[in-house]
């Protein structure tokens, strides 16, 4: 092949790789959109977190498909190499390297800004709670106290829907972690420290219908760690007041 022809052939491969990349990206995005990634979500925080995950997914598809398509094309095109035949001594390509550095840097900065910082800011908005609940972890039990009424429960966490709730979390023995999968919140319970996290439940439900509605210990705490969980029940505000008063009085 003359230099011109090989240049032309090379251009054809580059164009074909680009087209394949576009096709793979479109197919990938469609697949990602078609799959339901998230388990049952029932809070404002779940929306923020799931949105962040979805955005990262959308951004990942072109990256993954680029690496796979370019690598795959190179492997198919270059297959059948033999030990005494060298490839061309290409050591650099200004456009490819420059484009790569600029694009990957921009992408990294983008994910820092959104969904990174923007998601955190959203989580931190609305810092004033309507209701405070004390959560105490001890091997291998969760104890919930409602300071307003003095009510203390174990075995089930009862919450009002659409209220801003702050959990004040404590532990006396080892580190535990207060995790409610349906709410996408998790906060370690650290001996000697009160940690807090906030949630706004947005859907009614209970563990019997959706096992994501549970408080699960998420930090290894010894032999009972796997079984250290209780159900969560989200009720209307009226039901909640009734529950609180009925039990408290």
């Amino acid at each position: 092949m003359s230099g011109d022809e090989s240049k032309k052939a090379n251009t054809r491969w580059v164009v074909m790789t680009g087209l394949l990349w576009v096709v793979a990206t479109v197919l990938g995005e469609l697949a990602v959109a078609a799959i339901e990634w998230h388990p049952f979500g029932a809070s404002r925080e779940a929306r923020i977190t799931d949105d962040a995950f979805d955005l990262l997914m959308v951004l990942s598809v072109p990256v993954i498909s680029f690496v796979l398509v370019m690598g795959g094309v190179a492997l198919v095109r270059g297959r059948g190499g033999v030990i005494d035949e060298d490839g061309p001594p290409v050591r650099s390509h200004r456009l490819f390297i420059g484009g790569w550095v600029v694009l990957t840097s921009a992408l990294a900065v983008l994910v820092i800004i959104t969904p990174g910082f923007s998601g955190l800011d959203e989580l931190r908005a609305e810092p004033v709670p309507d209701l405070v609940i004390d959560v105490h972890a001890e091997r291998w039990n969760w104890v919930y106290t409602y300071p307003e009424s003095g009510r203390e429960t174990q075995g089930e966490l009862v919450l009002p829907v659409d209220q801003r709730i702050m959990f004040r979390i404590s532990s006396t023995d080892v580190i535990h972690s207060f995790w409610i999968p349906a709410f996408r919140i998790k906060q370690d319970a650290v001996p000697g420290q009160i940690t807090t996290t906030m949630v706004t439940p947005e859907a009614l439900g209970e563990f019997d219908n959706a096992d994501e509605l549970r408080v699960q210990c998420a930090e290894l705490c010894g032999v009972g760690h796997a079984r250290m969980w209780t159900g969560v029940r989200v009720v209307t505000e009226a039901e909640f007041e009734e529950w609180l008063a009925g039990a408290g009085g």
Binding site: G78, G80, D86, G87, F96
Partner: peptide
């Protein structure tokens, strides 16, 4: 980047 750039046009 370096791995892909090396694979490209390689005699594999």
């Amino acid at each position: 980047l370096c791995a892909l750039g090396t694979l490209w046009l390689g005699k594999i």
